[in-house]
């Protein structure tokens, strides 16, 4: 990257929460290795050969004894990276839907100190995605819910591709173990008055990633989780 900054790649951590990703994880990690960032795989209690798929790769591997949920795995990765003096933390999916080419655009505003958090968006100009009609409607509802609770009208909701600077990552302390963590992140960022920027990213849904991801109707459960999060925060 051709930017004037003092940050070395040592300070950049890509956190990949995984659960039974033996089909894709090695390919995803290998595609990221060219960047020479630190890669942290948080295995959320996989019961398949995910761990074996990583043999020989220069990545950190952390394993939850039991499956806790994506939010819990992400928080584990964040705490690990922060303990190793991470300056920039990126959350990245292990199912192959995120693109390595987007990472430069994602971390650029952090390096230039334009924002504390950069969120990937599937709906900004220049973004490409093969998202289905129903998923798009569900995301619209998600955006509306976020607006209701935070006043932030974002162009996307629940996109797993994000980058945080150290300050933002430190305040997250996610307590939602499952999918509602995506909303919790926005609530925390908003309440700590951190600067958020959205950049266009390309998300490619395959049959595999769709089967791994949340269903449209799972959105209703997430909404309930968000409500309960607000009540029991």
């Amino acid at each position: 990257m051709n930017l004037n900054h003092n940050l070395k790649n040592d300070g950049i951590y890509i956190i990949i929460p995984v659960f039974n990703e033996q089909q894709t994880i090695r390919k995803v990690v290998e595609s990221l290795l060219v960047l020479h960032y630190n890669i942290v795989i948080v295995d959320d209690g996989s019961t398949d050969a995910t761990e074996d798929c990583l043999v020989g790769l220069p990545v950190f591997y952390i394993r939850h004894e039991i499956n806790l949920g994506q939010g819990a795995a992400l928080q584990t990765g964040i705490e690990f990276a922060l303990s190793r003096e991470a300056e920039i933390l990126i959350s990245f999916d292990g199912d192959g839907q995120h693109q390595v080419a987007d990472l430069a655009r994602l971390i650029e505003p952090l390096l230039l100190h334009e924002a504390n958090v950069v969120l990937g968006s599937r709906f900004l100009p220049a973004a490409t995605t093969n998202i289905s009609f129903f998923r798009k409607q569900a995301i619209f509802l998600g955006r509306a819910v976020h607006f209701l609770f935070t006043g932030l009208w974002l162009s996307d909701a629940h996109n797993g591709l994000r980058a945080f600077d150290r300050q933002a990552a430190s305040v997250l302390e996610l307590r939602e173990n499952r999918m509602a963590h995506a909303s919790e992140i926005l609530f925390k960022l908003h309440s700590h008055q951190l600067t958020i920027k959205e950049v266009p990213v390309s998300i490619l849904y395959s049959m595999y990633s769709k089967s791994k991801g949340q269903s449209v109707f799972g959105g209703i459960k997430i909404f309930l989780d968000i409500l309960l999060n607000r009540i029991f925060e």
């Binding site: 790769l57 990545v59 591997y61 952390i62 004894e65 307590r175 173990n177």
Partner: peptide, 25 residues
């Protein structure tokens, strides 16, 4: 929820303590 958070914390601390660099392992 409180119990779940406590359990998560215990599991998290254990797993971070057991973190390995795969290539070195």
């Amino acid at each position: 929820r409180r119990l779940e958070q406590m359990m998560t914390k215990v599991i998290r601390n254990n797993s971070i303590a057991g973190a390995v660099k795969v290539s070195e392992k």
